[in-house]
Every structure is written in structure tokens, then in C-alpha cells.
Amino acid sequence: MARFEAVYKETYGRITAYAARRCDSPQDAADAVADTFTVAWRRVDELPEGEQAMLWLYGVARKVLANRRRTGRYRQERNAELDAEVADLYGRRPDSGVELDAIARAFRDLPGDDRELLSLVAWEGLDREEIATVLGLTRNAVRVRLHRARKRFARALAEADVSHSTTRRLVPAERSR
């Protein structure tokens, strides 16, 4: 029980932020977080030590959210704050909502796996090795998939006539620990 409590206290904020960025409402995010920690409680013997526990919980949360989508209790929409973060990653801030809307549409129109990879980098601040752990892939598979996701996003932005700096790339956000 003490082990679970320690992991819960250490990871709750990041798991909550992860879910909040992927849910339509705070209530949906709270439900997803509760489900995630319920799984962790039931499988506490499988819970890895140290930083690996956070990555394991990201993987659990990802599956919880996928189950919620499949059952129709979850609708994926980006809110203006998250759209602005994506816009900031690609250079200048749009002068009007038109460009911001185009960026949001381009992001939403990406395949779900691409959105998840880009989100794990930009919003969760994970590196390739950590993403590999979360997704159950090899580091090299993550590298290739991330490269392709970035290319598809850049192509979608170009097709939407959204200007972005070619010198800035989708890179991990600063980690707040």
C-alpha cells in the first residue's frame, strides 16, 4: 500500500495533465485518471520502480483513453489553449484565429497514432526511449514513426497554407518536476 501511495503522489499531476489534454472536460479527465490508478492498484505487483512507473502509467492511461473512445464516452477535440501550444511550436503566433483554426484542423486530421506521438513529445515532454516504453515499441520504431508523423504534420500544414519555421521542430516541452 505504501508503494502505491508513493507512486500515486509522485505521478498524479502528470497523469492528470496527460488525461486533461486528451479529454473534452475535467470530469472525463478525472474519470480516466481514476480508471488509470484503479488499474495500477489492482496490478501494483507489476508496477515498475522509479521513473519506469511513470512511463508504465502513461501506457495504462493511454489504453484507458483508447477504451473510452471505443465505447463512445470520449470525443477527441482540441481546445484553443492546446491549439495555441501547437501553433507556438511552429513559429510565429497567428495574427488571427484563421491560421490557428487551420493548425488545429491539420492536427486533428492526422492519424491517431501520429497525434499521440506528437502529443507525447510536445505536451508530455517525453524522449524517444520513454515514448518507446509507453507505447511498447522499440526506440528505433519510435524514431521512424516520429519522423514520419512530423513530415505528415508539416505536409498538412503546408496544404492548409500555414506558414511555419523550418528551423523549429516539434521538440519536447520543458519538464516540470
Rank of each mutant, 00 (worst) to 15 (best):
residue 73 R to G: 08
residue 78 R to W: 01
residue 52 Q to C: 08
residue 79 N to L: 07
residue 80 A to P: 02
residue 88 D to T: 11
residue 64 V to D: 00
residue 51 E to V: 13
residue 94 P to C: 07
residue 50 G to I: 05
residue 54 M to S: 09
residue 83 D to Q: 03
residue 66 A to Q: 10
residue 69 R to A: 11
residue 57 L to S: 02
residue 59 G to D: 00
residue 77 E to K: 04
residue 51 E to W: 06
residue 84 A to P: 00
residue 96 S to K: 06
residue 61 A to R: 01
residue 80 A to L: 10
residue 47 L to N: 02
residue 94 P to D: 05
residue 55 L to C: 05
residue 70 R to N: 11
residue 94 P to V: 09
residue 81 E to N: 07
residue 74 Y to S: 14
residue 77 E to Q: 08
residue 63 K to N: 15
residue 94 P to Q: 08
residue 57 L to Y: 00
residue 95 D to E: 15
residue 64 V to R: 03
residue 79 N to E: 05
residue 60 V to G: 00
residue 53 A to W: 01
residue 77 E to P: 02
residue 75 R to M: 04
residue 78 R to A: 10
residue 45 D to G: 10
residue 70 R to F: 12
residue 83 D to K: 03
residue 85 E to A: 10
residue 88 D to Y: 07
residue 48 P to Y: 09
residue 90 Y to F: 11
residue 71 T to N: 14
residue 93 R to A: 15
residue 80 A to H: 08
residue 58 Y to C: 03
residue 65 L to W: 02
residue 64 V to G: 00
residue 87 A to G: 09
residue 52 Q to A: 15
residue 48 P to Q: 09
residue 54 M to K: 04
residue 97 G to E: 11
residue 59 G to N: 06
residue 97 G to N: 15
residue 77 E to D: 13
residue 56 W to Q: 00
residue 87 A to E: 02
residue 64 V to K: 00
residue 50 G to Q: 09
residue 66 A to K: 08
residue 72 G to F: 01
residue 64 V to C: 06
residue 48 P to S: 11
residue 95 D to W: 11
residue 69 R to M: 08
residue 78 R to D: 02
residue 61 A to V: 04
residue 78 R to M: 12
residue 80 A to F: 06
residue 56 W to Y: 13
residue 50 G to T: 04
residue 82 L to Y: 10
residue 87 A to K: 02
residue 48 P to A: 08
residue 68 R to K: 09
residue 99 E to N: 13
residue 72 G to N: 03
residue 76 Q to K: 11
residue 53 A to S: 05
residue 84 A to Y: 01
residue 96 S to E: 09
residue 77 E to Y: 01
residue 70 R to D: 14
residue 59 G to W: 03
residue 55 L to A: 09
residue 98 V to L: 12
residue 75 R to A: 14
residue 79 N to A: 04
residue 73 R to K: 14
residue 56 W to F: 12
residue 78 R to L: 07
residue 64 V to E: 00
residue 54 M to Q: 08
residue 47 L to D: 05
residue 61 A to K: 00
residue 47 L to T: 05
residue 71 T to E: 15
